Computed example of a mutant assay.
Amino acid sequence: MKKVLSLAFIMLFSVSIFAQKVLVSDPAHSRIQFSVIHLTINDIVGNFDKANLNIQADEKNFLNSKLNFEVDVNSINTHIEARDNHLRSADFFDVAKYPTMTFTSTSITKGKQKNYYNVNGNLTMHGITKPVSVVLVYRGSVVNQMNKKDTHGYQVLATIKRSDFGVGPNFPEAIISDQVRIKGDFELTER
């Protein structure tokens, strides 16, 4: 009887392992863009050029999947070197102390539109972890003709408050908006 139960457990465990696949982002085709309003009149846009997304995708039910991303904050790029250096300083991100930003999902639910998902999770930025919600958009899959791999497109959309994470506390809303819009674009392949 013990052998039968052990065999059943192993088979059940094996099925759950095979029902998942790990998708990892392609660094050459993945980044996170952010946008803030400067002086209440103009959008300033920048990127984090080094951002990794991975999805432990449950092939039977995507809502059971796990999503994680990590951003190298030092890779901030607004195309103005002096501004980028200021954003890296203790006035804003303090990359010497807090070099990475991470997000780990805690739940995924279907959105109102096809291929849209609401993802709740924990965002850690500037040494502070807070629950946030992001929208995940599945953009489709194709076979990449260069490497013959299935490539999956995902987009992450969110709006957060920089004040929730202590970023730029000495810069009021009249100079830089508290709300930061985020858009991440990722191409992923199976590991």
Rank of each mutant, 00 (worst) to 15 (best):
S6M: 14
L7M: 11
A8N: 05
F9A: 13
F9S: 06
I10H: 07
L12A: 15
L12Q: 06
F13A: 15
S14Y: 03
V15T: 13
I17T: 09
I17H: 02
F18H: 08
F18T: 11
L23H: 04
S25F: 05
D26N: 15
D26W: 09
D26Y: 06
P27D: 09
A28C: 10
A28E: 15
S30V: 06
I32F: 07
I32C: 08
S35R: 10
V36A: 12
V36W: 02
V36G: 10
I37R: 11
H38C: 08
L39D: 09
T40K: 14
T40Q: 15
I41E: 01
I41T: 14
N42M: 13
D43V: 09
D43M: 09
I44E: 13
I44M: 14
V45N: 15
G46V: 07
F48S: 02
F48K: 02
D49G: 10
D49K: 11
D49T: 12
K50Q: 15
K50T: 14
N54E: 13
I55N: 00
A57I: 01
D58F: 09
E59N: 12
E59A: 08
E59P: 03
F62A: 09
F62R: 05
L63S: 09
L63T: 02
L63A: 12
N64E: 03
K66Y: 00
K66H: 05
E70Q: 10
V71F: 06
D72F: 06
V73Y: 01
N74L: 05
N74P: 00
N77E: 05
N77Y: 00
E81G: 05
E81L: 07
E81D: 10
E81C: 02
A82D: 08
R83H: 00
D84H: 01
N85S: 04
N85W: 00
N85M: 00
